[in-house]
Amino acid sequence: MAAALALWAGAVAAAPPERVVSINLCTDQLAMMLAAPGQLLSVSHISHDPNVSVMLDTALGYPVNHGQAEEVFRLQPDLVLAGEFTSAYTVGLLRRLGVEVAVLPVVTKLEGIPGNLRAVGALLGREAEAEAQAAKFTATLERLRRHGSTAPRAALHYANNYTSGEHSLAHEILTAAGFRNIAAEAGLAGGGTLAMERLVMLMPDLVISGQAYPGASRSEEVLRHPAMEALRDRHAAGALSDAEWICGTPAVLGAVARLVDLHDAADTP
């Protein structure tokens, strides 16, 4: 992280970039929040997908790119914002073509989000805006945070029995809202699968299911499995949209707020 920041510092020394292109869903969000009018030329096509984009309305105001070096280069950007999971080939090719590419690391801690805001702010020459957003984020998170002595045990359950363990943003979101994460109890360090049998045996107080996407898939059938339905009938349950959980950006506050509502509802019988 420190090394990455140092790398950006070098890039920022010059005048602020005027033609910025973002090719990653998460950098899209940060760029749209912070960029000066006219500074951001294009966002990734994923930001136009209502299933995963939290800032859909804003994103619809920007032309999309598909993250391919050729189309990005044609926009003649002086800065490209990419994510850690952006194809290394694309990043390498753009750099060889002389385009400045900043690769933003994936954030697995809520504390890392203000840092990300400041980093993108520095890259765009919008330090003041970034500082304001970072302060707002920290204040809102502190206001939402639940510490209650009774921490209900929650299970995150996504397609293919995927769940998130201790070192993940989803775990931090759960904990901030005052829940304990059963995947961490089961010993999962990061993201991974937890067999449905094991999840049922852990008897969570709350099941938080991933959203269902259009079309059909066997992977998502586990979300409606009778055993999971039985767990949901027993206690509170929520189906949460994935969009707010994906990116280490202030969008996660939406997820925290929704979970806090579930927590408060569970507390008042």
Partner: peptide, 13 residues
């Protein structure tokens, strides 16, 4: 062709 992000990975199933 399915709009579902998981569908293509289920070819093997």
């Amino acid at each position: 062709l399915s709009p579902n992000p998981f569908a293509a990975s289920e070819i093997v199933f």
